[in-house]
Write a protein that binds this DNA or RNA. Structure first.
Lengths: 199, 199
DNA sequence: AGGGCCATGTAACCTGTTACATGATTGA
DNA sequence: TCAATCATGTAACAGGTTACATGGCCCT
């Protein structure tokens, strides 16, 4: 469901192909929603069956023809309704395998645990870089502008949008920082114990 | 997969019923892994088919008989192998519908957004209370001890365990705080704009 | 020479949610 | 009297992942 509405939300900016959508999802929603290409294609065909999008085929040579999806009036309406209708519970359930492993950490040995926490920090630092790349959402604006040439029906005020996009990036930033601090604290506590245990 | 190993990990502490397991998952793993009862029953039957657990039936009156699952040697081995074999990517993918809605916030109106962010903060504060309740993991130790009477094979050093359990609770704490701070900052920024726009 | 980008999709599978079925006991 | 706790499960559905199928162009 959510992915379908996310797709509709993006198609509000410009008509796009499934492949384009995958790129945009990776470069804008990525920190709080992911989707594989095959999933996007599947959801697009559902959306088309429901009349929320229509597709035009642009023939190409040497590659499969492009299938450009445009949001319909019904699609816009459905999106607006979904957007205004917040669920009662807002907090997303979290599932984090790494934490399951930490929970059973006593059977693992502190050296191994520290090593894995170190890996975790490394990984989070590289996610940091990705967040910085996304920050200004240039990819999104650029791709939308490309696909939006000669389309008088859709005009986007990017200044207005970026305020909200920034909120989501800020969250990714804050949470990523918090993950790193947490892992560092765990390592510290494990080291304190080692010191007191081996004087 | 993860749920199966989480179940095995808990059964390492004591033999338990599906219902017990549900209670324990809710009161210990809950902040980073959830499971419904029906799912636990399903996974238990898979684990039994694979020989990782065995079940004994304790007849009861007025209620369905208890089916107590005990981890086998093969189960312990499988668990230990899984625990030591960390995946390459440690960071859990995040899916957060609320953030999708924020992303498209320009179409929502700032009043509504502030309202929903307020609701989000409320919700996070009540999650705070649940974190405090779980903190000392009394539920877990108590239930395990009850089911572990007369079982010489299983002895748990809870002092040793709680160090790692605390790591996971700390993370829930830190992240919950970060969510609240983020939402507060968003509201502030929305209010700043309103002030400058209406002098 | 090999990887990444472009471009479409199908099929099988795994995991999680929700609804259904059943029902006594206990405490507020 | 109503909700929670105890106690088992099945069935259908929804959503996400992975593997498969196809293949040229461009850059290093």
């Amino acid at each position: 469901m959510v992915l379908q509405y996310a797709i509709l939300g993006i198609l509000n900016y410009a008509p796009l192909t499934g492949y384009n959508l995958k790129t945009l999802v990776d470069k804008s929603l990525n920190h709080f929603w992911k989707a594989s290409l095959s999933q996007i294609y599947r959801e697009l065909s559902v959306l088309e069956r429901n009349g929320y999008v229509v597709s035009d085929i642009l023939p190409q040579e040497d590659r499969p023809d492009k299938k450009v999806y445009t949001i319909t009036v019904a699609g816009k309406k459905a999106f607006r309704e979904w957007l205004g209708d917040f669920p009662e519970t807002l907090s997303a359930p979290r599932r984090d395998e790494f934490l399951v492993r930490i929970f059973f950490g006593s059977q693992l040995g502190d050296a191994e645990l520290k090593k894995q926490l170190g890996r975790y920090i490394e990984e989070r630092r590289s996610i940091q870089k990705k967040i910085d790349e996304i920050r200004n959402h240039k990819h999104l604006s650029r791709l939308v502008e490309q696909n939006n040439k000669n389309n008088q029906k859709i005009t986007i005020d990017f200044e207005k949008e970026t305020r909200y996009w920034r909120f989501t990036i800020n969250r990714a930033q804050i949470i990523n920082d918090a993950y790193i601090r947490w892992a560092e604290e765990c390592i510290e506590e494990l080291e304190d114990r080692n010191k007191t245990n081996s004087p």
